[in-house]
Amino acid sequence: MRRSFYQWLMTQRDPVTHDEVKNFANGTFYDQAFPKQSTDFDELSRYLEENGNYLQAMDIFDAAWRQYLASEE
């Protein structure tokens, strides 16, 4: 069974390392309304465009999404 994007993203959290995906993961951890069960790119992208004030740029989400897909192969 495929894990959700949120479940994968939480494996990327790291309060010490400051790369963009890790910072995104750290910010998402505190977002109580994040669609935690979603595996749908469009749903997540739309949510982040409207609510992801902790995300510096959508390119970071795109990079994280590619890593997520690669990890689920």
Rank of each mutant, 00 (worst) to 15 (best):
E49A: 14
F24V: 01
L55N: 09
M10S: 06
R13S: 03
L55A: 14
N26A: 02
S45I: 01
Q12I: 05
E20D: 11
Y54F: 05
Q32Y: 15
T28D: 04
L55Y: 05
Y54K: 04
D14T: 01
E50R: 07
L55Q: 06
F34M: 04
N51G: 14
P35K: 11
E43N: 11
Q32S: 14
H18L: 15
L48V: 02
E20L: 10
Y54V: 03
F41W: 14
T17S: 13
L44A: 08
S45Q: 03
F29H: 13
Q37H: 12
V16R: 13
Q32R: 13
T17Q: 13
N26E: 07
T39R: 06
L44D: 02
D42H: 13
E43Q: 08
E20W: 07
M10T: 01
M10D: 08
V16F: 11
D40G: 07
P15E: 07
T11E: 07
Y54Q: 08
N26D: 05
E20S: 14
N26L: 07
T28Q: 03
Q32G: 08
L48I: 01
D42Q: 11
D19F: 12
E43R: 15
R13E: 14
N51K: 10
P15N: 09
A25W: 12
T28W: 12
M10C: 09
G27P: 10
L48H: 04
Y54D: 11
V21A: 04
Q32L: 10
V16L: 10
N26P: 06
Q12V: 01
K22V: 00
N23G: 15
Y30P: 09
P15S: 04
Y30Q: 12
E20H: 15
L48Q: 04
K22W: 05
T17H: 10
R46G: 10
F24T: 01
P15C: 03
G52S: 04
F34E: 01
L44G: 02
L55M: 11
L44Q: 07
F41A: 15
E49P: 00
E20K: 12
M10V: 00
V21L: 08
P35Y: 13
E43H: 10
A33D: 04
E49R: 09
Y47H: 09
N51H: 08
V21E: 06
H18K: 15
N26Q: 03
